[in-house]
Design a binder for these strands. Structure first.
Lengths: 192, 192
DNA sequence: GTCTATAATTCGATAGAC
DNA sequence: GTCTATCGAATTATAGAC
């Protein structure tokens, strides 16, 4: 019995199971259509347990999407390869397990929930903008460049992972990295 | 029964009022959060009237978003100005009255309603792809180019009109036409 | 810790009076 | 043609037994 030192309690397993089910449901159905009942059923427990552990639906969502884009340090990438590197990073990220990528989950729900949209704006400000600021000195200019990059990257995620637009779904990652990467590169280092 | 002979009935005004209210609600709240009750209240009539005129919520939504992008004839635009022309077209379209632009309404609901996403794919296939096919002979190549254009244009719409990303909201239309237009131009006529 | 039971809302849709 | 009244279903959330 090592419950004292490493409290691997049954409650921890339940808690983790709820979170895993919640991530999958929120990713597939969005915030509103995902129900506490369905999440509980997936986790094999009672709906009231979800409330017990996470308080309410909003707090469960917040716990399910703790987003860390894990963006690379831009100063350690050859300046002329920033675009393709970033695009490859994002694609590789969500291509693995789309139901576990918080960015896709947020994107799916942001269109109909203002609080989620606000969260996405925060992530942009705290994680994306700083990376661009590392290679573009002027803050105002960096913000615009980062914003342009966001339009292209979020549009790619929408078309490939959410709208499932046939020609974009069919495209290979390498092809997307080449073409979209060139766009991102220009937004980052091209003329303004 | 006879819509041609008696065009100015009271019912027509009611019907139009419902549709106007529905467009605004669906545009602002998305399909799920927009309620029949709220639409009826906005139109100043009883909720049951909405059902009487449009059958159910899904049919009302379908009637509210009959999308005609009214894209220009690509063959009548100077080939090297296709990008900026298309971007300017879209911005001007939704900048006027965002609550009346069906494309934005569809985009807001597509992330959480598969039927709406399917509708958006149809619009892409029927209205966007043909325009590109007019300037790119090969069908497969045209589909890919059109898809890339879609990633950029829908991403721009998302960031500027739905997510309200600060640097993109603050950007002038002219600036967006210049930078995003250059991207679209490359997707249409650049090397593959 | 886990579940039963249920409260309190909200929504789409229907029936029928006038 | 318009409205009143209401049904039936689904949801979040709570109270409390075991």
């Amino acid at each position: 019995m090592n419950d004292v030192q490493l409290p691997a309690r049954r409650s921890d397993a339940t808690r983790a199971g709820i979170l895993r089910a919640a991530r999958a449901r929120f990713a597939g159905d969005g915030y509103q259509r995902a129900t506490i009942r369905a999440i509980a059923a997936d986790a094999g427990i009672d709906p009231s347990m979800v409330m017990r552990y996470y308080g309410n639906k909003a707090q469960l969502f917040a716990a399910a999407v703790d987003v860390d884009l894990r963006l690379p340090d831009a100063t350690r990438i050859p300046p002329d390869r920033l675009g393709e590197t970033l695009v490859a990073h994002f694609i590789q990220r969500w291509e693995g397990d789309p139901t576990d990528d918080a960015l896709l989950t947020l994107l799916r729900s942001a269109a109909t929930d203002e609080s989620v949209a606000a969260r996405l704006r925060d992530i942009f400000r705290e994680q994306v903008a700083p990376v661009v600021l590392a290679v573009v000195a002027d803050p105002a200019e960096a913000a615009l460049r980062a914003g342009l990059v966001a339009t292209q990257m979020l549009g790619l995620a929408m078309c490939r992972q959410i709208l499932l637009l046939p020609p974009i779904v069919a495209a290979t990652p390498a092809l997307l990295v080449a073409h979209v990467g060139a766009t991102v590169q220009r937004y980052l280092t091209g003329p303004l």
